[in-house]
Structures are given as C-alpha cells and as structure tokens.
Design a protein around this nucleic acid. Structure first.
Lengths: 264, 264
DNA sequence: AGGCGCTTGTGAACGCGTGCACAAATCGGG
DNA sequence: CCCGATTTGTGCACGCGTTCACAAGCGCCT
C-alpha cells in the first residue's frame, strides 16, 4: 500500500516465532484462503488439495501453491493440506492468534453499521471502542459499547491496547482524527473516507472507497456497452451476457459451489 | 478481477466515442484522480501540474503522467492539465456522464448504511432500488426508497435500467441472489459478502471484504511487533512508530496536505 | 524574435507477479 | 517390497506495471 519498500530483510529468526517477509500480493490472498479453509472445515473436510482449496478461494491453483510454499507450509505430497494445521499456520502468520482490539471513529451511517457488524469477531477482531465528535451521539451505546468523544482517543487506545483503527468520518475530519490516532499509538488505519491520509513512516493505511469501486465497475460497463453497439453481431456468438443460460456452476472443478456459502 | 484476459483488442473506433482498452491498474487509479480533481476545482485551481495532482491523489507523478497519456489526455507542456477538461475526460472514460442506476440487495446492517450513504450521488451513482428477502423489512422506506422483495428484481432491474448491483446479503444468500441479478440483466456486481461468486462470462464482480482488509493490516501489525521485540535497539533509531513526533506533513512536496481534506 | 525555464509525454530498464510444466515425494495396493 | 497414482513444491519464462531519465513542446520574459 504505502511506499515503504525497505524491509528488515530478515528471513527466519533462529527459533521462536518464524519471521518471514512475504510478497504483498501473497499477504493479500492469505485471508481469502483462511476463509475458504473455515468453510471447508465446516463441511467436514480435514484435508484439501491445492486444486480444491484454490477453487474455494476463487484463485489459480498454482498461485495458491506458490503462496503456501513461501509461507513454508506443511502440505503432504500425494495427499494435500491438513485443513486444521493450515488454518492455524495462516492465522499465526497473519497475527490472528489473539483477538485484536479495533477502534472505530466516526459513528455516522457507515460507522453505525460497522459497529454492529457481526462478521468481525469470528475473524479475529473485536471492536473495543467507538468515537465521534458529535455531541448528539456521545451518550449512545451500540452493541453494548459506549460512544465516546474523540478527545478520549489517547486514553482509551492505550488502556484497551488498540493498534488498529477504522476511520468512517466525513473526509474533512479524517486527517485530524488520523493524527490523533497515530499520536495515541495506532499503527494501522483502515480509511473509509474518500481522501488521502498523510501518516508518518511505520504507520500503515489501507483505503476502502466504495464510490471508487463502483466507478471501476462503471468503466467496464461503459466498455461493454460501447463494444456491444460497435459490433452488434457479437451479441449472439457466445457471450450474450444478458439472460445467460441457467447460471449453473460454470467455473471450476472440485468443490460444489453451493457448499461454499456455508460460512458465517 | 476475473480471469477474463481476452480483449476485443479494439483501440480507437474510427470517430465517435473514443474506444480504448486501458490497463486494469490504470483504470483502478482514474477514480482517485477524479476525486483529487474535484477537490482542486473546489479550491479554485484551474490548472494542475502532474506533480501536484499526483500528490493530491497520493500517487507517484510519473505513474500519473503515464496513466493520463494512455488515456490520450490533453495536457499542456510547461503548464499542466486543465482541471475542468481533465475532469470531463476522465468522467467520460469511466462512463459517468449519465448517473448510473444501482440496485442494492440485502438491507441488513451494512445495506442500510449504504442505502443512506450520501457519497454516491455526487460521484455518478443513484441507488434506484432496494431489495431484501426478509418479510419484516419489506414495507420499510429508506431515503424515500421502498424495500422490495427479491422476487421483484427481474422486473425492477429492467424498468429502472439497472446494470450494476451491490450485494450486502449474508454469504449463504449471495450466490442465489447473484444468479437472480445476472438473470435479470445485471452485468456488474459489487460483492460485500465474504464468499466467492460464480458468474457467467461477461459479468464483472468486485469484492469488498472488510475483515480481509483488517487481516492484512493485522499481518503488518504482527510483523512490526515481532520486528520490534526481535531488535529492541531499533526502538530508538528513527522509526519509533509509537508516539512519533508531531504528525506533521512528513510525506511529500507539492500541495500542502492540510488542504486536501477540503473535498466533500 | 529569440532564449530560457517549466512540464508533459514516452522510450527503456527493471522488478514483481503469474502461470506452466516437471521433478520430488508420499500413500496405498498388490 | 515394489509400483503406480496423486499431489506438492519450484525452476523458469513471460508479461504487466513501475520507475527513471530525457527529449519534445509550450509559454513567458526580455
């Protein structure tokens, strides 16, 4: 994400906790593998081939094997991967062994929804504090959690041991709030505000901008539309795209896709 | 996103609407440029250098120039880019000249928030229909919009001319709903459910998984933490990362970063 | 009119990520 | 004990994306 390229160039510290620097692309896929593994465990699978796991994660099998090998993973040739072991391995690498406390700043429309979202806790996170600047929201409790004033960030972040924060304020408030969070000791921010954040080195920022996602889709829509009018004879060949045949599992072998929805 | 690599390999159709196939990475950045341009226009700038615009978008200047050049853009050497012209260009390429109608399926915690989110309409989108399967929500209106039953998807998508849908259902419901949407003619889906969707060729799916974003941040937290304990002498050199110096703009030249928060 | 400074646009090198294809390894059966 | 079926782990090549550095172009000032 950030421009930080330099690594400590450490590989595997002698013994204790294996320390390794994975390619960013691999890191971004590990959570998806983890989710797929949970789904597989829930339907009773105890081992998986790379082919099956890749299908469940929506990813190329070779890519998955390379990812897991870089992780120093313990698969068994001729058999596959042990679901439980691999789950544990990835969880450890991602630092999910402890439930991480997360702060949420900006209890507006979106913040309210995230505060009540049940999908975080089974995946390693616990929303430990809510903050807003609006006096009108301060008394409110959401899911048994009190909405505090942003001026309490410094105290609460320390006492709750928070290192990750989600930012759902209006864009004009995002930078000052980010400064407060960093000052308090937060070193990772998930930014939902449509603006660029400036943070000191050592702090990671990931951005989620829903309008941007839609605009990217819009581009492809635009391209598809103009391609359709430009070459109208291509409306029949094979990719009609509108009213396709029964949307059956036309994707991959292995796991039946109706099963994969079985996760929380 | 999907595995669809083959392009129509079309470049610039003779006259009318310029047709060009941009690299995916460029497409993903164009919306960010657009947002930065809006912010610049709001503070009165009518021309921008690639350096300034890149800073406002949080991106490398050379990358920005290459992106815009691929777009066939009209900058002026020695001066920069005309803000209004460039805004219009990018908007056209992204297909944002018309306000696109978007469907939202799954009016739960998150869906409710998105339905009320004010940030879509100024960026080219209009939420035109809400759907849910839960009887309890059917009567409800959000922002003057009625929550309909999913069985009405087929009708409403056609009459409203919807081609993009956002999916905020629980994961087990995502695939069947996606099938219904595709069947109705939707060709782009923004999926918030933590599961893999199987769609026919010609349909684009983008996934937004908030827990995954947190898990990626968690990895970096884990790495930073172990690096700190492994080499405790590095706690002083320069990147203390906790309680850093006054979080001043320690990032880049060009635009003062205190200005960039001024966008809507 | 001419020169100078500034900024764009792009050619070229580099590095990362992806995908193929195969050797190595493991299990089960005969 | 050996053999074949199966699946992992990886060396290698290719392509995309990023970055640098510079030539080309534009405006302004003298």
């Amino acid at each position: 994400m950030s421009e930080d390229k330099r690594q400590t160039s450490r590989r595997k510290t002698s013994a204790g906790s294996a320390e390794l620097d994975l390619p960013e692309a691999t890191v971004a896929r590990l959570p998806e593998y983890l989710r797929a593994l949970h789904a597989l465990a829930e339907i009773g699978r105890d081992t998986v081939s790379s082919e099956d796991l890749a299908a469940a994660a929506g990813i190329n099998a070779a890519k998955l094997r390379k990812d897991l090998s870089q992780l120093g993973s313990y698969g068994t040739r001729g058999v596959g991967y042990d679901v439980e072991l691999l789950t544990s391995q990835i969880s450890t690498v991602l630092g999910l062994t402890e439930n991480r406390a997360v702060a949420l700043v900006g209890i507006g429309n979106l913040g309210h929804a995230l505060a009540g979202y049940a999908g975080f806790s089974p995946r390693g996170f616990r929303i430990a504090a809510l903050f807003d600047i609006d006096e009108g929201r301060l008394g409110e409790t959401i899911g048994g959690l009190l909405v505090r004033h942003v001026s309490e960030i410094a105290d609460v972040v320390v006492t709750e041991g928070i290192s990750i924060a989600m930012l759902t304020t209006p864009p004009h408030a995002a930078q000052p709030v980010a400064d407060m969070l960093v000052e308090a000791g937060v070193t990772s921010i998930l930014n939902f505000a449509p603006c660029v954040l400036s943070v000191p080195e050592g702090v990671d920022v990931r951005k989620v901008d829903l309008a941007i996602e839609l605009q990217i889709l819009s581009f492809h829509e635009h391209r598809k539309a103009t391609a359709r009018t430009a070459t109208p004879e291509s409306a029949s060949p094979k990719t009609a795209s509108v009213n396709p045949p029964p949307p059956s599992p036309a994707t991959a072998p292995g796991i039946a896709f109706s099963d994969q929805a079985e996760n929380a």
